[in-house]
């Protein structure tokens, strides 16, 4: 307990109070904790408890691109799942545009969409069939929708001849682009991106990043981006939270994080990777030994 308290004190001094968002924030995460308990079949054995998130708090301004940076197992995906109503927190509350994700789940679902590292499609169905299904669920039907779908896929570099092929015959990069198109076509006001460009080539990454900006600028969307791609985070995010072992250890703009960590490190202009290592004591390639099981 003493060690944990010292660690908490050590990390909490690095959290910079973020400037309060003007007007109603898009997302408020207030004191969120989540633990996963695995009970063994043998009743005399102790259950295994994994702490995925511990007392995490932050808020995201409307129209902001907000990054969550953390190693594998740091609790990023668990946090995204709780915001997207797929997991119920043990403690704390989450609000999306003033709506409580537990109490107002149905309303929150109308405002959000999520792109995860797995493309989450029916493998045998084509991109057009998969998108047609998704768009119907989001209330988008009509003659113009198919044309818009085709145009969006073409803009993402997917040839017309591949739009009717089973998705399993497309490369992972292509599948991920279809997932981005799905999110784009449903025009969410809050887009949750969980490592959306993992496994994509540099050109595809650039296209996806362009789409993310476009979604923010043209559709008035707020973007919450989980990543362990430093360059992407630096390129896209206005502010960034760093998660380590399920705890928030830093929150600031990228220049702000660099300035504070640089001062502590005695380095004038540290890279974001150096900042991350300084904050967490490990590189992004390392997995956190605590945190989510995912």
């Amino acid at each position: 307990m003493v060690v944990q308290e010292l660690e908490r004190q050590h990390t909490s001094r690095l959290v910079v109070p973020a400037p309060a968002p003007i007007g109603q924030p898009a997302v408020v995460v207030d004191g969120i904790s989540k633990r996963f308990v695995s009970k063994p079949l043998a009743p005399w054995k102790e259950p295994t408890v994994v702490t995925a998130n511990a007392d995490v708090s932050f808020s995201v301004a409307r129209n902001e691109i907000f990054g969550i940076l953390g190693a594998n197992g740091s609790g990023k995906s668990t946090l995204i799942r709780m915001i997207s109503t797929l997991l119920i927190p043990d403690e704390g509350r989450i609000e999306v545009f003033g709506l409580d994700v537990r109490r107002d789940e149905a309303e929150v679902k109308k405002l959000i969409n999520r792109v995860s590292v797995e493309a989450s499609f029916f493998k045998k169905l084509s991109p057009l069939e998969n998108l047609g299904y998704a768009l119907r669920l989001y209330g988008r039907t009509g003659a113009d929708v198919r044309g818009e779908t085709v145009a969006t896929l073409e803009r993402l570099g997917i040839e017309r001849s591949k739009m009717d092929k089973p998705l399993e015959e497309l490369s992972r990069g292509m599948q991920q682009k279809v997932a981005i198109a799905r999110a784009f076509l449903t025009s969410p006001v809050l887009l949750l991106l969980d490592e959306p460009t993992t496994g994509l080539d540099p050109r595809s990454k650039h296209e996806v990043q362009r789409f993310v900006r476009e979604l923010r600028d043209e559709h008035d969307a707020t973007i919450l981006l989980c990543t362990h791609d430093m360059a992407e985070a630096e390129e896209l995010c206005e502010r960034m939270a760093v998660l380590h072992k399920g705890r928030l250890v830093a929150l600031d703009t990228v220049p702000g994080l660099k300035a504070r960590a640089g001062a502590e490190m005695g380095v004038a202009e540290p890279t974001l990777e150096a900042v991350f290592i300084h904050l967490t004591g490990r590189s992004l390639d390392d997995e956190d030994d605590e945190g989510e099981a995912a």
Binding site: L86, A106, S116, S120
Partner: peptide, 13 residues
Amino acid sequence: EGTIEYTMMAPVS
């Protein structure tokens, strides 16, 4: 298929 989370997250009752 790996789509269960997407379906559960969709805005349908």
